[in-house]
Design a protein around this nucleic acid. Sequence first.
DNA 1: GTATTATTTGTACTGAGTACAAGAATTAAG
DNA 2: CTTAATTCTTGTACTCAGTACAAATAATAC
Lengths: 192, 192
Amino acid sequence: MLEESAFELFLEQGYAKTSIEDITRRAGVSRNTFFNYFDLKSDVFWVEIDRALGLLPEKLALTESSLPPAHAIVEAFADCTAELGSGFVPWILTNFEAIGEPNELLSSAFSRFNSTTRVLKGFVSQRLNIPVDSLECQVIANTSVSAVAAAAVAWGKAGVSRAPLQSYLVHALAPLAEGYAHFRAIELPRTI
Amino acid sequence: MLEESAFELFLEQGYAKTSIEDITRRAGVSRNTFFNYFDLKSDVFWVEIDRALGLLPEKLALTESSLPPAHAIVEAFADCTAELGSGFVPWILTNFEAIGEPNELLSSAFSRFNSTTRVLKGFVSQRLNIPVDSLECQVIANTSVSAVAAAAVAWGKAGVSRAPLQSYLVHALAPLAEGYAHFRAIELPRTI
DNA sequence: GTATTATTTGTACTGAGTACAAGAATTAAG
DNA sequence: CTTAATTCTTGTACTCAGTACAAATAATAC
């Protein structure tokens, strides 16, 4: 499996010093085969997370329409990971300190941040009946995803006896649920 | 100015189709000169924003210690941009739809997100007297920066008759001020 | 066994980013 | 004004992620 080879080499010699050629040689395939499975080198980090995030739209759709959006978001994210099993802990969450912040990881992380906020904007827009391209939707989506990211990283860091992810999500998003309970669109003034 | 040449070319032919060689040729210098001024190609987008963000630590330090952190954050960010003049509107904020989401922009954006959250984590830790590496600090910093980013993008989009950035910041961060008013560290349970 | 389809691989390429030394321009000192 | 020192630009060469495409190989179907 390319990911396993990649993770071994990243720990042995660091992300930057590990070339795609190294990874594919370790896996016993050609360099170009890598690009049959991944668009980018850093995509190896996201296989499990992408699988979980892929479930998000349907999990959001399944939440009770009377539930406040922040609660629905917690439930949806928790359901995404629950469906992938209790042993599900993405490698990058437990190893990101070893990996550091190479630009390729930053770009692939932000790419997923953006696609996740797009999903949440649509959900919030529909649930709160406000325009999807409003500042309010963007803020709720941005802050929710960044809180989820912080919770996920903390959860990954907590070690093998960690509490369920949902505990972390609830704790991280509770203030947002409270803060956004009365968050309404306003007409920002224009200068004369 | 390298930035001006870059922005002209990005609009003429797109980010991906504009090489560093193109930019430096347009500016009348050698390709390697580019790297005397910038670490990365996409760094051209951030000159003004980096200047503003560079002021953040001192602006945060200047806020009243009795001010709730979210209010202090609004004030500090607003002061950062106010000090750089009323005409200060970073090119990327008004042109990011034209630029799209090239991986290089995503990585440089996330790099600045991370460094800004580090600044805010330190501030929140000191102001609320909680450990800087706690989930609470991370969540407050992450959500604050992502709300500021959403506000800044909306502000950039609003056109030449836009309200002051502070209006957008206040609106975006008000729910966070409310939500974090009683946000305290808790001991997340460990599994047996 | 042959034909078709799917997958891997080889080759060649672009361009961001890096390193380093040489050349040119600027500044300082005598 | 000349020389020396310092600063900055530039040329050359490189690595490696990422791309394109065709050839080779493997797998599948008949």
